[in-house]
Amino acid sequence: MFKKILLSVDGSDHSLRAAEKAIELASLSGAGSIDLLHVVAGNTSKSDVLHHGDSDSASRKRMEKLAPIEGLIENAGLSVNTEVLHGQNGIAEAVVQHANDNEYDILILGSRGLSTVQTMVLGSVSHKVMKHVKAPVLMVK
């Protein structure tokens, strides 16, 4: 059933919890691999370049941030394909497009849980994703 699994993470602690659930699901459904997706928002580009010098160093830092999640998946005996996208129109839009274009069986999301004010201004990424992704979505709190 859930053979083609997409795990979308932002690199926070919630990502690790989402990764654990993705691994459980993969072992239940006998999937051999998990696709890992990380989307960089436009404003994140700005602060990352500012803090890490240039685009190359920023990319390296992002891969470092994803390494523990990759490690977790690999230690469970699964292979992992990591993709970092630059969400020019917003994180949710990029996740939705990637998930729909590649016809995943399930999308697993880690939810960061913003405060009410933050959600009001930024909007909820998980909400937008759940609304527009065709595949079933598992949101891990």
Binding site: V40, S45, D48, D54
Partner: peptide, 14 residues
């Protein structure tokens, strides 16, 4: 040049 690096990063080009 800072802005150029930011656009490099956003568009994933050099």
């Amino acid at each position: 040049l800072l802005t150029a690096s930011i656009v490099d990063d956003m568009t994933d080009t050099e």
